[in-house]
Simulated assay, not measured.
Amino acid sequence: MTANASGTVEIRAALVRLRRATGLPVAFGGLVEPGRPRVRISELTGTSTLALSALAVTSGNGLGGKAVALARPCAVTDYSLSRQISHEYDVPVAAEGLRSVLAVPVVVRRRVRGVLYGALRTAQPLGDRTLSAAVAAARDVEQALVVREEARDLMAAARPLPVTDAPAPGAEWSGAAWEEVREAHRELRSLAPRVADPALRAEVLRVCRRLAGAAPADLSREAGESVRGAAGGAGADGSARAGGLSPRELDVLACVAAGATNAAVAARLGVRPETVKGYLRSAMRKLGAHTRGEAVVSARRAGLLP
């Protein structure tokens, strides 16, 4: 799946939110095609025809092309009669019966990545409230695309790390190299809940499992000894007790393992500090641990954290 194709998941979700927030009966949009100055309309909601489906909107042309070229929202009260835009796309717009139309660009790192449209089948002004709601939907797409790119970058960075399902006998792991693995795991676990695309989220979590299960034998033994020394009998069977951790409990432990405070974990995961405490208490109970450190070590020994 290409980055552009999979990005339609975010566009589709934003269009649903746009219609709900504005009350506009029609919404559609798409992403800029890689290497080309045009947007391909890929998602439609509320339409009665396929006239707009797969339409290629070139930068500068029509309402959407103007929004792309200027990198700012644009709107017209009557599309076919407007003197503010060019009219290359009058036929498909008329076929769908659209009159008042707005177009909002999706801008990521100063580059236009797509356009969201909202429309009425009557000619009437689209107020500031409607435009603001459309802009908010575009901002949601922008944030989702940033998260997507961060996840892709982190997964790419994780590939060359010294991680295998079964480390070669006698392989030497430096402390710095293993810290890279742990940092990549923590970052990816923090991002995973914010990834809108289910396929990409599953891929991120697969990489997390690969990183978590790659502990070399010497580090696994060290973790086991730490558990037995710090947690007594509770850590002796940490792997058996760790299976019931929820994804969110594991997210919290991954951050705690990096030395983050509850407040820092909350900011990272977008939850309240009290919620972090609840997840941490639950994880400690399931792991049979009495402290945060014991919980982290038990989770590592169980192969749930690197």
Score class of each variant (00 low, 15 high):
185 H>R: 08
35 G>H: 07
176 A>M: 07
300 R>T: 01
40 R>C: 11
18 L>N: 05
24 L>G: 04
255 C>M: 07
47 T>E: 09
196 A>Q: 13
211 L>E: 00
274 E>Q: 14
291 T>Y: 10
140 D>H: 11
188 L>R: 02
247 P>L: 13
254 A>Y: 07
213 G>R: 13
73 P>R: 03
259 G>R: 04
24 L>T: 04
63 L>G: 02
132 S>V: 12
52 L>A: 03
25 P>M: 07
187 E>Q: 15
86 S>W: 12
201 R>L: 05
176 A>G: 02
255 C>F: 01
156 A>T: 11
185 H>E: 12
9 V>L: 10
135 V>T: 15
60 G>T: 05
194 R>M: 04
215 A>K: 00
26 V>E: 02
282 S>R: 15
139 R>C: 08
52 L>I: 05
192 A>R: 06
168 A>H: 11
72 R>Q: 15
76 V>R: 04
291 T>P: 05
272 R>L: 12
75 A>S: 13
172 E>L: 15
93 V>S: 07
296 V>M: 05
218 D>G: 02
57 V>Y: 06
204 V>H: 04
278 G>K: 13
79 Y>W: 13
21 A>R: 10
210 R>P: 01
173 W>N: 00
59 S>Y: 00
260 A>C: 08
276 V>T: 09
278 G>N: 13
30 G>I: 11
226 S>M: 00
268 R>D: 08
246 S>T: 15
305 L>K: 10
302 A>C: 07
239 S>I: 05
260 A>N: 06
108 V>M: 04
249 E>M: 07
302 A>H: 07
106 V>C: 06
282 S>T: 02
161 L>F: 11
280 L>I: 03
47 T>H: 11
114 G>L: 10
33 E>M: 14
240 A>Q: 12
213 G>A: 14
80 S>A: 15
98 L>I: 13
166 A>I: 08
161 L>K: 08
274 E>M: 13
280 L>Q: 13
69 A>N: 02
98 L>E: 03
191 L>K: 08
192 A>P: 05
97 G>W: 10
136 A>K: 10
261 T>N: 00
201 R>D: 00
294 E>H: 09
198 P>I: 09
9 V>M: 09
38 R>Q: 13
175 G>I: 02
84 Q>S: 15
96 E>K: 08
147 V>Y: 11
290 H>K: 14
272 R>V: 11
206 R>F: 01
301 R>P: 00
163 V>I: 09
153 D>K: 09
192 A>Y: 04
139 R>G: 02
272 R>P: 00
273 P>H: 09
201 R>G: 01
89 Y>L: 05
112 V>H: 05
73 P>T: 02
196 A>T: 13
229 G>Q: 01
273 P>V: 10
284 M>W: 02
213 G>I: 04
222 E>W: 06
119 A>N: 08
259 G>E: 01
230 A>E: 13
157 A>V: 09
79 Y>V: 04
225 E>D: 04
189 R>M: 14
103 A>T: 00
181 V>F: 01
249 E>W: 09
89 Y>E: 06
106 V>D: 05
224 G>W: 00
29 G>Q: 04
241 R>H: 14
227 V>A: 13
2 T>L: 14
172 E>F: 11
239 S>D: 11
289 A>Q: 04
95 A>C: 03
173 W>T: 12
88 E>Q: 13
170 G>D: 03
274 E>G: 02
177 A>S: 15
160 P>E: 06
190 S>E: 09
